[in-house]
Simulated assay, not measured.
Amino acid sequence: MLNSPPLSRLSSSFVNALQAARDAAAGQNYLPGALYVVATPIGNLADITLRALHLLQLADVVACEDTRHTQALLRAYGIDKTPAQLLAVHQHNEAQAVQTVLERLQQGQRVAYVSDAGTPAISDPGARLVAGVREAGLCVVPLPGASSVITLLSAAGVLADSSGHSGFVFAGFLPAKATERSAAVLALSAESRAVVLLEAPHRIEALASALAVLGERPLTVGRELTKQFEEIATLPASQFPGWLSADANRTRGEFALVLHPAAATASAGPDTRVLQLLLAELPLKTAVKLAAEITGEPRNALYELALTLKAG
């Protein structure tokens, strides 16, 4: 086991936390030559786990999405790493950086991987690194912790559907192009489970406009989760653009969103809602074709319904 730095060098705010981490986690086994995937806070520094604090002290190398960001994070906890102990592994170099990490692991070093915030390899980089380490036959150890996806779901109050089924779909970031984003929203409109989305502040208004076509379907919006100005609201999707424009501050910060399951309908016929959405944007034949692909319903039935809707 590596020696830990003396307490006199630690950040005063986390001296007790680091000591608690050592007391709670130091007796556990930390294999050499293993990659440790470590979740870090999504905003509130106090959301770090004791095991993560101990492992970050113990690690020979900390691979990270942004070395400057991670160095500042570690120093906030009173953990000092030299520049040589920090290795950049981000979306632009991840494929090449895998080889560097493998070399360190094969030397018996403990390598921690952290993204800028939250759990790596979900929406952040890290999946290629984990896959490469596993393909090489080496050990990957996850250290669970903060996740914007799970954080918002726990506060959204998502209920099981009328059949008693629960669960959710993680869709992450939708396409940036307007036409592709609209098509993705239409596809999600047929999803019976809750859908979790992520979005950046500079694209949130465009996403709000795209989601507005879903009408009364409930949407839980989480902005700046765990931070000082955290805001969580549940509202109909159609009201999302208005909710954003009501306060200029609401377009700031990172977003997680939960699209709640669609309300059950009594109709056993074709999915009218999806077809209506498509007919509003596309020619009849194209709308019918896409509706059949999205819903799995017979094209002939959808075509008859489309004619009726157009006539109405």
Rank of each mutant, 00 (worst) to 15 (best):
A280W: 02
S267Y: 01
L219M: 01
L244Y: 09
R203A: 00
Q96H: 12
A208H: 04
E254D: 10
A246S: 15
A206Q: 14
L45Q: 05
P32M: 01
L152E: 07
N93I: 02
A171E: 11
K81P: 06
N44S: 10
C64E: 06
A39D: 11
A263W: 08
Y77E: 06
V195H: 04
L174P: 05
V140P: 01
T67E: 06
K310L: 15
G242D: 14
V130Q: 07
N16W: 10
P241H: 00
A97F: 03
S192G: 06
I42K: 08
T226C: 11
P125K: 07
L259D: 03
V37R: 07
L188W: 04
E216G: 05
P142V: 01
E135F: 02
D161F: 10
S182M: 14
V38M: 03
R181H: 00
L188H: 09
V133C: 12
I48P: 14
V111F: 02
Q106M: 12
V37Q: 08
E205S: 15
F255L: 05
A20P: 13
A17T: 02
A88F: 03
G43Y: 04
A187Q: 14
A136M: 04
L309G: 09
V221Q: 07
S182Q: 15
A212D: 05
V111S: 03
A248M: 08
T82F: 02
E231S: 13
Q96G: 08
S192D: 12
H260C: 07
A248P: 08
S8R: 12
A52N: 06
P201G: 01
L159G: 10
A59S: 12
V258Q: 05
G242P: 14
V185R: 00
G164H: 02
Q107G: 11
G27F: 00
G43M: 05
G164M: 00
F173N: 03
S245D: 10
H90C: 06
D47A: 12
Q239M: 12
R75C: 07
R110W: 07
S245Y: 06
G108W: 00
A210Q: 04
T119G: 10
K289G: 01
Q239H: 13
L282A: 10
I294F: 11
F173M: 02
A237C: 15
T272Y: 07
E205H: 14
V38T: 03
A183H: 12
D271C: 14
A63K: 08
P218G: 07
R181K: 07
L235C: 04
A200W: 00
E224K: 11
V101Q: 03
R181N: 01
S8A: 15
L197K: 01
V133K: 13
